[in-house]
Structure formats: structure tokens, C-alpha cells
Design a protein around this nucleic acid. Structure first.
Length: 775
DNA sequence: TATAGGCACGTGGAGCCCTGTCT
DNA sequence: AGACAGGGCTCCACGTGCCT
């Protein structure tokens, strides 16, 4: 018998996974402890699920026991009391031994007479562990451990066995992490990357300590892969970060490795990267991140190219390198300009490393808040982050977690939008309700578990729709929202006492941002048919209360003597009479009980006939453009730039003639063809596979051409195309912008269908129409 | 492995009417 | 005179990206 020596360690949790090992499900906690990389093993934790019973436990247990005997698995039953959607229920907690067969067991046992339903068998085992123990990714813990007896073969400085669950510490910050970025240049011959068919020309890596390295092809790519694998082993990064790597690059590397009889052993458990939740590639023991997932969340990015993303983050981007198109890279390599390709790849890897650096604080705070491992929190969409938060919250509140089920889409009425008063206005104030929906949900206790169809006293009854919600006790959503709001309030207090330059300030600031995002997503989450806690009545009632709030605010503004020029969901636009506006704000606060704030003031504001489209000159001197073509990603640069400049002239100089002349000059220039090619590119997202479209559309046809050329446009990719001269419908006259050889842009189209309509949208309020601009 | 609904607007395509031409 | 092809027009569905 080995001597058992217990000790106490403090560690920061990087990754968590589960393995069946030696016949037992084992939770693996990958931690960082005094600069060492450690693995902590938990073998005592057992998977379980619930059976909600309609009878007394005694009457169902014998049948459950005899049914469970048919399986070889040892099963333990515990009678427990829980809540389900706020209603107290009796349940049997079924503790089993194998997470992989638990689903089948749950299905069998749920058929036993007296069982209403099974619950929580669909919670992943590692998630179960996080929920039950409070152990939290990207957070510090202390644990009692001893050296593991039969440690698995892994890359770690130490492997421990846990003695009891770790205890989470209330401590901010994170250890010094080893971050490695990489960029891969796969060769595609004449076409694009057929995953793994063609060799990998270059792999560039970068890290904060060792600096850049490059591995590139000589005769073949075998050495490239071997060097890459060796490099990863040598540096042993905690985080491996790429850009767009979940969309095929990992697959390319795997296929190339297989081709050469190699194992792409880049994780800490000498296995290979594998596809995991949320369509991301998981690397055991490390956090494998794809920053494209983050870029896709940023609405102001028209096209989620790395260079755009990097510029958004304020990084120093070398334009001459980043302007290279992916489609040209393999040609460049083939044609001999290898130095340029190497520089390009190196710069990409460097930019990715810098981007990771600047995002890491926010990402760790998100991970800590919603209790998803770092790699999952990056890959998961907003709805799943909210849900993860709620699942952990539910456990603490004794609420059973509903199953994920598929439901039919069920639309409901949302926010109220007023017709704007078209024309130019001076001195307009916008007041809006901060976080209106979450605050309404708190105020009226709107929650799936407080909703009742029975007539009762003490109900909040929603306007228009008439749904009733119990005033007490606090509903599940209200509890969750209040706890988020309170946490954010605490952080605000802490932030006041800190200098913005400190590490702590950056951490707390990121954390409050994460909390704000989750708080504001809660309403959308509850109306999402895929949500575990979906409740249409909740979403519908919240929106209805929102409409009544805005309508009442308009009345209050009118009775204060202020005309309402426009309004959208939670905002109203008024003449900026400070005394009267203050009066409105006060009345709104007192009568409605929600905080409204003056959001911004326009010196000049121009509405078109349309809702959600206007532009103005702010009191700060900035131009604000809302909804118009100039800020839309699916209009050509020529049109966007012309409209932007035109708006500047109108707002700053109020010179309609000058503006008109400017547009005419733009039109003439376009017709002459005196415009850079990139300003002719129109970008549109491919939202489904090209074959599934019901109508012929330009960007879909462009995607098909790319496919013919060997490139694989993915669903979600932005397709850039140029309209070219020729006959027929528009969709017959488009080319992907990278494949323009032999085609000439249709400048007439750009003048008539892009620049002129965009300009006329603004100028039409001055009675300048399209024909006047084309003349 | 989709947070919500409201809205504008370009494009394609179906359907209708009109008109000119052929039988 | 009637049949019919084809052009022009209207209207609507589809599709996308924006706003809050």
C-alpha cells in the first residue's frame, strides 16, 4: 500500500471533463496551482437524475427496485422534496454509477406506474459536478488532496486525488496563463481547402513568452505537423487560440496528421482534438478557443474578418498584409512569393495572440459567472450562457431543471414603435428606460412559476393580454435577476474606490459587463422556444407591460406640454426643454415606478418617413446615423460613403444644393468607373446551404460560383460579390469579388441602384428625387 | 446547440391585363 | 373575330440586416 499523504492545495480551474476510467466515472479538474499545471481527480461523485412521483414514495419504490434490477447497474433511491416551476413536488433521486447509460435507465424507470416524469438525466456529468459542488471554471478554489494512486497518463506537473469537493474562494484574478495562438495556411491548389486533401503550407504560432515561430513546408507537410505537435508539447499552453479554426482548420490538421500516420497529440491527455458542445473543437486539459465566435457576436462588424475584428479591438493591424484575400494565399505560395505568405501568417498569429490577450479578462469573468468552462463560454450562444447561469441558480433554489424539448415557434407581440415626424428637427432630447424588460420582470414578478391561470387575489395582471402573476413569493426569474442586479451594484461600489488602471478594476469592470449582458438577455431567453425555462406568457406579458409604460410616458410628456417626435420600445424623443423634460422624468419615476434617464440630446435630428431610420447631430458634435444604408453591411461602399458624406453636409451645413451637387458628382464618378473595386463589394450572409434557398438570390449564386472554384462557403459566412455587366436578372450578373477576372463591374447598377437610392432616402425630405440625382 | 419582436427594403416570381400578331 | 405570346405592371413572399 502506498503511503497516503494528504495536503491542501489552492488552484485555479482551467478546464473540466469526465472520463470513464477503471470502470468508474471520473471528473478531471485541470488546474493551475503555484505556477504548476495540476490534474485533480474525483472518483466519488455519482451521476443521478430525478423521478417526479404523483404518489407516495412507498408505493412506487418496490416497482422501481424490481425494474432497476433488470439492469446490472447498482442503483440507489432517495426520496426527496423539490420544486418544479415553483410547485412543490415529491421526487425520487436515482443515484447511479454510469453517466453514459443514465439516459436509458431514466427512460425505463419513467415508465413505471406512479412516475410522472423523469428530470435532469440530460445534464452532462461534468456540468452536474459544477452545479452540485459550486466548483467554478476560471475561479480559485482550495481542496484537500493526496497524490493519485493510479494516475492516468497526462501532461501535468502533478496528479492528485481529491479528498472531498474543492471549496470555491471569493478571490478575483487569475494566474499567469500560457496562451498560444496559431494560424494555418492550408494549400488548396487551384481551389480552396478540401479538408486535408492538400498539404498545409505554413503553421505560425505565437505566445506571450517565447515569441513567434513558424513551421513551413519543404517537400511536404509531414515535418510541419511534427514540429507543430512538438512545439505544443514543449510550450504546454493553457490556452490555444485561433481564428475561424472550428470551421475546418482543426479538421484539416487532423486529416493531414492521419495522412502521415501521425497523431495530432496537442492536448494534455495524449488524445486528439475532438468535436464537443456548441460545435467547437475541444482539447482536453487546455482551453481551445476560436475568436471568430466572439467576432460574430459583435454587431458593428459588417464582415467578421480577422483584420476588422482586430481593428475593432484597437489593435495595430498591418494593412498591407491583412488586406490579402484568403483565396489568393495559396496562389501566392505556389507562385513563389513565399516570404509574403510567411509574413502574412506570422502577422495573423500575432494579431490573434493580441486579441486573445485583450479579451481574456472578459471571457474569464463570463466563464466564472455562468459556470461554463472557458472554451464552452466562448463557443456557446447567448441563450446557452443564460441557461447555464439559470441551471446553477435553480439548483441552489431547490428548483428542478426542466428538460430541453423542441416546441413549435409561437410568435407574440413585442415593443411599440411610433411613426416619426418626418423632416429636420432642432434640439431634441431622447429619454429612455434603463433595462426596461428586466426591471419590469422584477417589478411585476413575471416568471414561469408565478404565472397562474386561476383567478386569485394579489395578482399582477398584465395589460392587453390579461395574464396573471402572483405577487409573492418571488419567482425564479425575479430571484435570478435580483441577484444579478445586486451583484452588479456591489461591483459598482467596488469600482468607485479603484483606479481604472489597476488589474482589479479591469476584472470588476469586465465582470459587471458580463452581468449586464446576462441580465438583459433574460427576457429574450424566456421567449425563446428552445429554452428550458421557456414561457410565452412571461415574454408576452413583459412586452405588454413595456408597451403600456411607453404609452403612459407619452401621455405624461404631452401633459407637460412636450410633443413626442418618435419612440421605439423603451425610448421617446422630445423637444429638449430641460425644465419640462425634468418634469416628465419625475412624473414617470413617480407614477410608473421605473427609472427613466435622459439618454442623449440632438442639436439637429432628421427623420425620414420610415421607422428605425434617422440621423442626427449630437450635442457632442458627433454625427449619429441609425438604420440607414450608411451603416448597413449589405450596401456597397460607394453608396455608404456617399450617404455618410451627404448626411454630414445636410446636418452640419444645411446646404441642400451642395449636398445634391456632391451626390451628382459621386454618380458621375461611379459611371466613369472611377471607384476602387473594394467599394463595389456587397456583403451578405449565407444563412443556409445554397441549395436550400427557395428563390434565386445574388449572394447565393455568388456562393455557388465559389463552390465551383473549390471554395466551401460555410453557413454563416459573409459572401462578398460584385454586380457585373451582362444580361438577365441581377443574380445572373454577380461574381464573387475574388473571382473577377474577365468581368467588368456594372457601374450603371452601382449608380442607379446603390448610390442614388441611398442618397434619395435622405434628400427626399427636401423634395430632391432620384431622377434629379441621376440627371 | 437559434435570446425576443418590429421594421424597411431589395429582389424574384406569380398572376393579371393589355396589346400586337397570327390564324 | 378569336387565340395567344410576350411585355409591363402589381402584389406578395423571401431574405437580410438593422433597432431597441
Amino acid at each position: 500500500m502506498p503511503r497516503i499523504k494528504a495536503s491542501r492545495v489552492k488552484f485555479w480551474l482551467l478546464d473540466i471533463n469526465f472520463e470513464m476510467r477503471l470502470g468508474t466515472p471520473e471528473i478531471w479538474l485541470w488546474g493551475i496551482c503555484n505556477g504548476e499545471r495540476v490534474l485533480l481527480l474525483e472518483r466519488e461523485f455519482k451521476p443521478y437524475f430525478y423521478l417526479v412521483i404523483s404518489d407516495e414514495p412507498g408505493s412506487v419504490l418496490p416497482a422501481l427496485r424490481s425494474e432497476s434490477l433488470k439492469t446490472k447497474e447498482p442503483v440507489e433511491f432517495q426520496s426527496v422534496e423539490r420544486n418544479f416551476f415553483g410547485r412543490p413536488v415529491k421526487a425520487i433521486k436515482v443515484i447511479c454509477s454510469n453517466p453514459e447509460t443514465m439516459g436509458n435507465l431514466a427512460q425505463r424507470l419513467s415508465k413505471v406506474k406512479g412516475i410522472e416524469r423523469s428530470l435532469e438525466e440530460d445534464i452532462r456529468f461534468s456540468t452536474r459536478y459544477v452545479i452540485d459542488t459550486g466548483v467554478t471554471p476560471c475561479s480559485w478554489h482550495v481542496a484537500n488532496v493526496r497524490r493519485a494512486d493510479n494516475p492516468p497518463r497526462v501532461i501535468a506537473d502533478e496528479v492528485y486525488s481529491l479528498v472531498g469537493p474543492p471549496e470555491k474562494l471569493d478571490e478575483a484574478g487569475f494566474p499567469r496563463l500560457r496562451v498560444m495562438s496559431f494560424h494555418v495556411v492550408p494549400l488548396g491548389g487551384s481551389g480552396g481547402p478540401q479538408p486535408g486533401k492538400d498539404p498545409v503550407a505554413v503553421i505560425s504560432v505565437n505566445n506571450s513568452r517565447k515569441g513567434p515561430r513558424q513551421f513551413y513546408m519543404g517537400d511536404g507537410d509531414r515535418e510541419v505537423l511534427i514540429s507543430f505537435i512538438e512545439y505544443v508539447k514543449g510550450y504546454d499552453p493553457d490556452i490555444i487560440v485561433g481564428y475561424g479554426v472550428n470551421q475546418g482548420i482543426w479538421q484539416v490538421l487532423m486529416n493531414r496528421a492521419k495522412h502521415h500516420g501521425l497523431k495530432l497529440a496537442v492536448d494534455r491527455a495524449s488524445s486528439e482534438p475532438h468535436t464537443s458542445l456548441y460545435g467547437h473543437t475541444s482539447i482536453t486539459g487546455r482551453a481551445g478557443l476560436d475568436l471568430l465566435d466572439m467576432a460574430k457576436e459583435i454587431p458593428s462588424l459588417d464582415v467578421e474578418r480577422l483584420d476588422n475584428f482586430a481593428r475593432y479591438l484597437g489593435l495595430n493591424v498591418k494593412g498591407e498584409l491583412m488586406d490579402l484575400e484568403e483565396t489568393d494565399i495559396s496562389d501566392l505560395w505556389a507562385s513563389g512569393d513565399k516570404q509574403l505568405v510567411l509574413k502574412y501568417a506570422a502577422h495573423n498569429a500575432q494579431i490573434i495572440a493580441e486579441a486573445a490577450e485583450s479579451l481574456l479578462v472578459l471571457l474569464t469573468q463570463f466563464s466564472d459567472l455562468v459556470k461554463l468552462p472557458l472554451d464552452h463560454v466562448v463557443a456557446a450562444a447567448v441563450g446557452f450562457r443564460v441557461e447555464s447561469y439559470l441551471m446553477a441558480f435553480a439548483h441552489r433554489a431547490g428548483e428542478l431543471i426542466p428538460k430541453r424539448i423542441s416546441r413549435d415557434y409561437a410568435p407574440y407581440a413585442g415593443g411599440l414603435v411610433l411613426n416619426p415626424k418626418p423632416g429636420m428637427h432642432k434640439d431634441i432630447a431622447v429619454i429612455d428606460f434603463r433595462s426596461m424588460y428586466p426591471n419590469l420582470m422584477i417589478k411585476y414578478n413575471i416568471s414561469p412559476d408565478t404565472y397562474t391561470e386561476e383567478p386569485a387575489k394579489d395578482l399582477n395582471v398584465a395589460p392587453e393580454v390579461g395574464y396573471g402573476f402572483r405577487k409573492s413569493p418571488d419567482g425564479f426569474y425575479k430571484q435570478a435577476l435580483k441577484s444579478l442586479v445586486a451583484a452588479r451594484g456591489d461591483l459598482a461600489t467596488k469600482l468607485k474606490g479603484l483606479s481604472p488602471r489597476t488589474t482589479e478594476y479591469r476584472l470588476f469592470e469586465a465582470r459587471q459587463r458580463a452581468i449586464k449582458i446576462i441580465t438583459n438577455a433574460m427576457y429574450g431567453y424566456c421567449g425563446w422556444v428552445g429554452a428550458r425555462w421557456y414561457a410565452k406568457s412571461v415574454a408576452e406579458a413583459t412586452a405588454a407591460w413595456g408597451r403600456s409604460v411607453i404609452l403612459r410616458s407619452i401621455e405624461l410628456a404631452k401633459s407637460a406640454g412636450l410633443e413626442v417626435m418618435y419612440g421605439d420600445t423603451d425610448s421617446i424623443f422630445l423637444r429638449n426643454d430641460p425644465v419640462k423634460v425634468a418634469k416628465v422624468l419625475k412624473a414617470v419615476g413617480e407614477e410608473i415606478g421605473l427609472e427613466a434617464r435622459p439618454e442623449k440630446v440632438y442639436k439637429k435630428l432628421m427623420f425620414t418617413e420610415a421607422k428605425k431610420r434617422y440621423c442626427g447631430l449630437l450635442s457632442t458634435g458627433e454625427i449619429d446615423i441609425v438604420g440607414l444604408e450608411a451603416i448597413r453591411g449589405d450596401w456597397a461602399g460607394v453608396a455608404k460613403k456617399a450617404q455618410k458624406k451627404l448626411i454630414e453636409i445636410i446636418l452640419r451645413e444645411e446646404d441642400v444644393e451642395k449636398a445634391t451637387a456632391f451626390v451628382r458628382q459621386c454618380v458621375a464618378q461611379v459611371l466613369k468607373g472611377d471607384v476602387p473595386k473594394r467599394d463595389l463589394v456587397i456583403w451578405k450572409t449565407l444563412t443556409k446551404p445554397a441549395e436550400e434557398y427557395e428563390v434565386k438570390a445574388p449572394h447565393v449564386e455568388a456562393a455557388k460560383i465559389m463552390k465551383e472554384k473549390g471554395w466551401q462557403p460555410n453557413v454563416g459566412d459573409k459572401i462578398g460579390y460584385i454586380v457585373v455587366k451582362g444580361d438577365g436578372k441581377l443574380y445572373q450578373r454577380v461574381r464573387p469579388f475574388a473571382f473577377m477576372e474577365g468581368f467588368e463591374p456594372d457601374y450603371r447598377y452601382y449608380a442607379e441602384k446603390q448610390v442614388v437610392p441611398a442618397a434619395a432616402r435622405v434628400l427626399s425630405i427636401y423634395k430632391v428625387d432620384e431622377s434629379a440625382l441621376l440627371a
